[in-house]
Structures are given as structure tokens and as C-alpha cells.
Design a protein around this nucleic acid. Structure first.
Lengths: 124, 124
DNA sequence: TATATTGTAATAGTAAAGTATGACACCGAG
DNA sequence: CTCGGTGTCATACTTTACTATTACAATATA
């Protein structure tokens, strides 16, 4: 995993775990890799993993069981809501950024369609 | 101006100045407010302004004239390219983020249309 | 020429993020 | 009960961003 040096690593890891859950690489109730293992996998310090996890635990997306491990919540609704929230966040970020450049609603849609089409052509 | 505490302030200011130019609040060749004034306006330290400006100067978006002031480049093409680059960046960020949540191309377009429509209704 | 205004630079201090390391607490299996 | 794996916590150190402050350099103008 490569990190954006403009955003705190712990925050990027938090979002990475969100994705893993939403995409299903981590199932509901499933145990996460041990923190020391995650630290190795994600090439950061255990404390940085802990920093990300502590926020996820506070949000009850992850449940921590001392001596056993960290587990994804069983609450499906919570994850569905999370997915919705992230999608909305990404959309509004893009919308706001583009609008601040004086790109109209109409143009935003056009540009996006064009972007996706260009991407298809390049077959990336 | 309010800052996102997840992103360096100097970087947000740099992007703010990009926008001011692209939107036309700062015309080609126009003189920027003095660095000390910018610091007051943007409620940060002069050094932070300088940090943002030094990058813009390195990119030749801003030209610095010691003793006179900082000026927007006269190079219209440069600004057009910049606008294009930012738009593309915002689109690809959104696209990548959404794709990573397993949202398909089709759904991305649908969600965006829905987002914009919802926004219109709320009349915000 | 003197003064105000502009950009530039250096120093020092604070805070947050990240690393390295070691210690402690809990749990389950042998 | 002991041991290995788990999460948790604390301390110390480094780096980056930011602030505060001071000083210096170039320009325009009165």
C-alpha cells in the first residue's frame, strides 16, 4: 500500500479498512489480522495501526476483544450506512471541488461521462 | 477560510490561489495582495503564505518581483492547462474512490445524477 | 535621499504524526 | 499452570507543519 503524504497515514489506513469491509474482503464478524501483522502488511508501526483501529472501535465498526483479536461488527446496517456515507462524501467532495472551479452541474456530468469513456478507450 | 485539519494548510492555500486565478478573481498579470495582507486575510502566518507561494512560483503560475509584489502569470495557456489538470484530478479521485467501493461505472454516473438532483431539490 | 512597502530569509519554539521499543493484560490451548 | 498469541499502553525520539519574531533586500515615491 502506498500513502499520500498529504494525509495522515493512520487516517488512510482507517479508510483502507472501511473499504476492505465494504468490499467484502473482510466479512461481518470476521477476525482481522493481528495488529502486529497489520503493521507489517501495511509497513507502518503498531501504534499507527492502533491509532486507526481505536477510531474504528469508537465508531463500533470494529469490536476489540482483548486477548482474542479485533473483529468486524456483525451489524450489517452499520456497514450499509457506512458505504452510503462514503459514497456521498466522495460525490460531494468532487462536486464541491468542481463547482469551485466554476464548472456547472451540466458540465460536471459531461466531464464525468467523458472521463469514463476515455478511460474505457485506454483500456486501463 | 476554514481549513481541513487532515491536509497541510499551505497546500490548501496553494489550491485556493489556483481557484482564485482559474475563476478569475485574480486576472492574468494581476498583482496579488501583499504576503502580510494574505496572512491576515487567510489567518495564517506569513511563512505559511510563503510556503504556498514558493511552490506556485516554482511552477511559474505566480511570478515574484522583489520589492514590487507577486503577480499572476501572463501565460493564459498555463492557466488553461492548470484548470484541465485540476478537473481531471478531481474526477479521477472521485472515480477511484468510488471504484474502490465496488461502485460500477454505470452506478457512478447514476449516483452523481441523483446527487445533483437531490441537491437541486434541497435548493442549497 | 529617506521612508514606506514589498518579498525573502533565519531562528526559535510548539504541536501532531509517526517510529522504535519495551512492558503489561487477557485469553485459550497444551 | 504455563506459554504463545492477542490487544493495550507508555516512554522517548524524529520529522513536518505551523507560528512568532526579527532582520534584511529590492523597489517606488515623496
Amino acid at each position: 500500500m502506498q500513502y499520500d503524504d498529504k494525509i495522515p497515514i493512520y487516517y488512510q489506513i482507517k479508510n483502507f479498512i472501511y473499504r476492505e469491509i465494504i468490499v467484502g474482503n473482510l466479512k461481518l464478524g470476521e477476525q482481522l489480522p493481528a495488529v502486529r501483522q497489520l503493521a507489517v502488511d501495511l509497513t507502518v508501526n503498531v501504534n499507527t495501526i492502533q491509532r486507526a483501529l481505536s477510531e474504528l472501535i469508537a465508531e463500533k465498526v470494529i469490536e476489540s476483544k482483548r486477548g482474542k483479536g479485533n473483529f468486524v461488527t456483525e451489524d450489517e446496517t452499520k456497514i450499509d450506512d457506512l458505504r452510503r456515507r462514503l459514497i456521498d462524501e466522495y460525490l460531494s467532495d468532487a462536486y464541491n471541488n468542481l463547482h469551485q472551479l466554476n464548472v456547472s452541474d451540466q458540465e460536471i456530468i459531461e466531464y464525468l461521462n467523458q472521463y469514463i469513456e476515455d478511460r474505457r478507450k485506454k483500456k486501463s
